[in-house]
């Protein structure tokens, strides 16, 4: 244990304040429509934090995050109809199983790097898309796949959060815990190993760091977060559709993580905002939500060419400059 583990940085403080604000204010002011939109944004914030963390800390591009969310959602639904465990137990098992899936995917993939790693994860996302479309999500049937013909059986949601308002708070707490998990890792030994690997794999190896282990570990954390967020999404809707988990959505999620700014918590929040809230705003204004794609695309090119830290990075830099001026 080191004392740095609990040190509060200005960015961390801002993050906790923001989470508290979201927890207290958002659910009480949002109407039913925005509750639904914000809940799915909060779920995706968690998944994005995983993919952004891999990109920022290790330079790895994973294009399969939404596919892994689907795995988490699948397991949550399957367990819901299999046993009478509470939702939370199913969610934790789903997150852990997704983490194992992440490891399985990572071990062969980690021999590859850069573009090839991105492409092999894209192949995995393409494969998962087909599996979801073929076997569908469990709806209360028998057998391994748990799919029955006809209508969906009722889903047992969390008993801690039965109303949409409470469920939004629930997801916000879960997403905050996800960020804290990443931050805690970053401050302990794995974080130092990752920093070294990011700088130079050769140096890391020479220093006795088990590169494969720590890369796999990072993959596992990202998968854990994806699995939990998929389970939370299932919990909010009571069912899932394969259309949510296409490979193209994984690509989009990564692109938005870059637009938001992969190095900061704010980046994941902005990315999720762009992914789910912006189309809803356009829809409310009567603007065709297809135009959101144009905004995503321009944002991505802008981020890659001129703002490597994304929108989140620019906002953070603005605040840092302000506080320096004051001091």
């Amino acid at each position: 244990m080191n004392k740095d583990l609990f040190r509060l940085t200005p960015s961390g403080l801002a993050g906790l304040v923001f989470a508290a604000f979201c927890f207290v204010v958002l659910p009480s002011v949002a109407g039913s429509y925005w509750l639904a939109i914000l809940t799915s944004s909060a779920c995706f914030t968690m998944a994005i934090s995983g993919v952004a963390f891999m990109h920022a800390r290790l330079g790895m591009v994973s294009l399969t995050q939404v596919g892994l969310m689907g795995v988490g959602g699948w397991v949550t639904l399957r367990l819901n109809y299999l046993w009478d465990f509470p939702f939370e137990v199913n969610l934790v098992i789903a997150a852990l199983l997704t983490m194992i899936c992440g490891w399985v995917l990572a071990l062969p993939a980690l021999r590859l790097r850069g573009l090839y790693l991105a492409l092999v994860t894209l192949m995995a996302a393409g494969g998962l898309e087909i599996l979801f479309a073929t076997y569908q999500f469990p709806n209360g049937g028998e057998g391994f796949w748990g799919v029955k013909i006809g209508s969906t059986e009722p889903f047992r949601g969390s008993i801690l959060a039965t109303s949409p308002t409470a469920y939004l708070r629930y997801v916000i707490v879960a997403a905050t815990l996800g960020f804290l998990l990443i931050e805690a890792h970053r401050r302990m030994f794995p974080g130092r190993a990752w920093a070294l690997i990011r700088r130079s794999e050769a140096a890391a190896m020479a220093a006795g760091v088990n590169v494969t282990l720590y890369k796999t570990w990072a993959f596992g954390i990202a998968a854990l977060l994806a699995g939990a967020s998929g389970g939370l999404l299932a919990g909010s809707l009571g069912l899932l559709d394969d259309g949510t988990f296409r490979a193209s959505e994984s690509i989009m999620l990564f692109a938005l993580a870059v637009v938001g700014g992969a190095r900061f918590w704010l980046g994941a929040v902005i990315a999720a905002f762009l992914y789910r809230v912006l189309p809803a705003i356009l829809n409310t204004w009567g603007v065709d939500s297809d135009l959101a794609y144009v905004i995503f695309g321009v944002g991505l090119l802008h981020a890659l060419i001129t703002a490597p830290d994304g929108i989140g990075g620019q906002i953070m830099a603005l605040f840092r400059r302000k506080s320096q001026e004051q001091s």
Binding site: G31, S32, Y33, L35, A36, I37, S40, P164, L233, S236, L237, L239, L240, D241, G243, T244, R276, A280, N283, S289
Partner: peptide, 20 residues
């Protein structure tokens, strides 16, 4: 409202019409 063949949008559409 258009649900865009997406369960999240479908839930949001019903929330808007029925709830709001």
């Amino acid at each position: 409202e258009d649900d865009q063949w997406n369960p999240e949008s479908a839930a949001a559409a019903a929330a808007k019409l029925v709830g709001d």
